[in-house]
Amino acid sequence: MSFVRLLLAIIIGVALGGFVNMGVILNSGFFVAPPTGADLSTPEGIQAAHALLEPKHYMFPSLAHAVGTFIGSFAAVKITKEHQLAAALVVGSLFFVGGIQAARMVPAPTWFVAMDLVLAYFPCALLGYWLARSKAL
């Protein structure tokens, strides 16, 4: 029964984290306007606007990845009673794989990809674990 609970915790964590991730991405234009004439809603549009993007345009995607991973890991740890660290790390790993795939599909500067992959996934998964874990360990 604990394996089923762990699996459900991971699935719910990934779904919730993905929902938060997309919410941040979809609302990022309200805080940092895209370059004039740029369509950042598709990988093709991002590629066409790549030369117009400034570092400020990468702030919200990185924030989305970090917050989505954190919320997903936090939720997974809260749902499961056993193997809480494993739940957080699996959620973080799945988001990390998604980040690698996104980096392959959407053009971005090397500094952003490196920063995003190093800081947004496993550190945020561990932070989610640390803040949500059962204190009686």
Rank of each mutant, 00 (worst) to 15 (best):
L6S: 06
L6A: 03
L7D: 00
I10T: 07
I11A: 09
A15K: 01
A15S: 09
L16G: 08
G17Y: 08
G18D: 00
F19H: 08
F19L: 14
N21S: 14
M22C: 12
G23A: 13
G23E: 11
G23I: 12
I25Y: 11
N27L: 14
S28H: 04
S28F: 02
S28L: 06
G29N: 03
F30Y: 14
F30H: 15
F31I: 10
F31K: 01
A33E: 13
P35Y: 09
D39G: 02
L40R: 04
S41P: 01
T42I: 13
E44P: 07
E44S: 09
E44A: 10
I46T: 14
A48D: 07
A49G: 01
A49L: 01
A49Q: 03
L53R: 15
P55A: 13
K56R: 07
K56L: 15
H57K: 06
F60S: 02
P61T: 14
L63W: 11
A64W: 12
A66E: 12
A66G: 13
V67A: 14
F70Q: 06
I71A: 00
S73R: 08
A76M: 05
K78Y: 01
H83K: 13
H83I: 08
Q84R: 01
Q84M: 02
A87R: 01
A87P: 00
A88I: 09
L89V: 05
L89M: 05
V90C: 03
V90E: 03
V91A: 00
F95T: 12
V97R: 08
Q101V: 15
A102H: 10
A102W: 11
R104P: 00
R104G: 11
A108H: 09
A108N: 06
A108M: 15
P109N: 07
T110N: 11
W111Q: 13
D116S: 05
D116A: 09
L117I: 09
L119T: 12
L119K: 01
A120H: 07
Y121T: 08
F122I: 10
F122L: 11
F122A: 02
F122G: 05
F122K: 06
C124Y: 13
A125S: 01
A125T: 02
G128V: 01
G128K: 04
Y129E: 00
Y129T: 04
W130C: 05
S134R: 05
S134M: 06
L137M: 03
L137W: 04
